[in-house]
Amino acid sequence: MARLAANHRQKRMASSPPVFRFAPSPNGRLHLGHAYSALLNQRLAGRFGGELLLRIEDIDLTRCRYEFEQGIFDDLAWLGISFPPEVRRQSRHFDDYRRALDRLDAMGLVYPCFCSRQQVKEAVGRCEAESGMPWPRDPDGAPLYPGTCRDLSEAEARRRRAAGEPHVLRLAMDRALARVAGAALVYRLFDETGAQRDVTVDPAGWGDVVLARKDVPTSYHLSVVVDDALQGVSHVVRGRDLEAATGIHVLLQRLLDLPTPRYHFHRLLNDETGQKLAKSRLSRSLADLRADGATPEAIRRQLGFT
């Protein structure tokens, strides 16, 4: 029944007006890269007769701040991008993500991992020293989790969780893939003309990804697929740096019987050194540019949205 319901939702999405979303995190001020993504979402939503939603992805309660959220609204209004008044803030919907996580747990696909990042690094180093070979990396270049906690007994895992040990919850990738064996892991890629083609993904290269943490009952991967489904998002337009991660999202959508949106991955903007614009590198913000006299028209023209 769940699969039939998911198929019905997929068909309904295909026949309804498209729904796009721009989903920044309020952990810093928006820069030109965000402006490009927001303007492209606006253009494609208009071109395809769809609606553009705003979502605030603020699951990181330590780095996300109110003033940065207000800055998002200010920057987007300055650029001339409007949204429906109901804005989804992830921090208000942890119960939605917890329910999705509980479903995966009930399938036997989730296990607690008590390893710190330093312990994972040390374990990978030992494996490389013993084998004399580089340890496998995920598509982002990070070493795959070596599976230290995969075989903990249920009693041991329960005892350590009850004791309050810091931990994350990981997806057992091999069991997850076995669960969907025989089902095609495919999403539809579309371009700015509307042309489409199917893309097959293989999420195995990510290993046992983190789905939640002890203090936050979700992760980017889990929350984004739940949000897109609950908001009826049919078209996801985001940067190429997230293209590989779509394999994880398609897998989670299959496991949770959620519809898979169409995807478009746009170019990334670099600074004068050739590095991708990023908040973590303190790339110049739209607020800085505005303070220096830039106009919305100049920004649009610079980014190719005349």
Score class of each variant (00 low, 15 high):
residue 74 D to I: 04
residue 11 K to F: 01
residue 134 P to T: 11
residue 158 R to W: 10
residue 94 F to M: 13
residue 303 L to A: 08
residue 206 W to K: 01
residue 262 R to S: 12
residue 80 G to D: 08
residue 122 E to P: 02
residue 277 L to E: 07
residue 65 R to Q: 13
residue 207 G to E: 07
residue 251 L to R: 04
residue 25 S to A: 12
residue 282 L to N: 15
residue 7 N to S: 12
residue 15 S to M: 10
residue 216 V to Q: 05
residue 88 R to G: 00
residue 283 S to V: 09
residue 7 N to A: 14
residue 166 P to C: 02
residue 293 G to I: 08
residue 63 R to H: 02
residue 294 A to C: 08
residue 236 V to C: 12
residue 214 K to M: 14
residue 260 T to S: 10
residue 69 E to L: 03
residue 294 A to M: 13
residue 19 V to G: 05
residue 294 A to R: 09
residue 221 H to P: 03
residue 115 C to W: 06
residue 28 G to D: 03
residue 42 Q to R: 15
residue 44 L to V: 05
residue 129 A to R: 13
residue 30 L to K: 03
residue 57 E to K: 03
residue 147 G to I: 04
residue 233 V to D: 05
residue 87 V to K: 06
residue 211 L to P: 09
residue 189 L to K: 01
residue 164 G to Y: 11
residue 254 R to H: 15
residue 302 Q to R: 14
residue 20 F to R: 00
residue 139 P to Y: 05
residue 258 L to S: 05
residue 165 E to H: 12
residue 213 R to Q: 13
residue 56 I to N: 00
residue 172 A to S: 08
residue 246 T to L: 07
residue 88 R to N: 02
residue 104 L to T: 06
residue 32 L to H: 09
residue 41 N to V: 00
residue 96 D to Q: 06
residue 197 R to E: 09
residue 24 P to Q: 05
residue 93 H to Q: 07
residue 74 D to G: 04
residue 129 A to E: 14
residue 237 V to T: 01
residue 171 L to V: 08
residue 283 S to K: 05
residue 271 D to S: 02
residue 281 R to S: 13
residue 183 A to M: 13
residue 218 T to L: 01
residue 224 V to D: 10
residue 134 P to W: 10
residue 114 F to C: 08
residue 73 F to S: 07
